[in-house]
Amino acid sequence: MALKGLDFTINYGEIMVLLGPNGSGKTTLLMILATVLKPTSGTAKVLGIDVTKQPTQVRKVLGIAFQEARGFWRHKPADILRFHAAVCGVPKAKRDVEIEEILKALELWDDRNKLFMHLSGGQAKRLETAKVLIQRPKFAIFDEPSSQVDLRGKREIWEQILRLRDEGSTILVATNEVREAEYLADRVTILDQGRSIVCDTVKNLKDKIAGGDIVELELEPGPDSARLQEELKQIKGTVNLVNTGENRYKVHVSMAEAWVPKMTNLCFERKARLLSVKVTEPSLDDVFLHFTGKALEAPKNA
């Protein structure tokens, strides 16, 4: 995937999530940062080090968990980590203790003597994450870290990534999973067709959407339901109102804190009994849709 007009900076010690659909250029970007691919133009720096001018120096501060977990087929997880730790300069005295700790945390300890070729996709993916965790690089990259992993495993991987951030690493995560992005991101960069569309915190991105809050209402059936629906649409701040069932409405509003009191006053005046009110935020899916005009797909490869 060709990258063009891609421009963003990651602050030290934060988790930046690259959110984009299949083919948006996430993996290409990560490969460039990891010095596996060389860009034909432009500049990329990792912790201030230019990836094309000093690739070896970049590799010394960087660790990457690839999207496709590929290992040496006839090696065991513990051996793979031992090799990786040795190459990455983890002191010999610490290696075995840390390998045990990480394998246990990622629930791979019981399978530590299985050959790589016999691991499931999810186990291989967790082992890929384990490589970066044992390395504790200053700059860590995770490419779709929890794809193919079950729900419990996802949570554990995310907790380990957050812990790595808390220990001082700067982290870049590429994903097309909204939940993963919301769980991990300090900031999100939305990528589409090789371009960075927007970059901000999750909250700010959601606030940038007109009708950024969603209010779900349920009213007691009454004689003037149609009129009340029209009056709800007239409340200042209503962006869109959708009838989702009998006397049920989903209303996109610009600011729920201001809109809900006006709505309750209206219901009180019209003697319409309010059965339930639920205020929710838009998801990053909605944010992606807003900025790109497309739904965020959820296939594997980027």
Binding site: A34, T35, V36, R59, F66, R70, W73, V87
Partner: peptide, 15 residues
């Protein structure tokens, strides 16, 4: 071919 090359190329050693 089996995808291990990117891993080897990303290790913190010179080419």
């Amino acid at each position: 071919h089996e995808g291990r090359l990117p891993y080897l190329l990303s290790l913190p050693i010179s080419r």
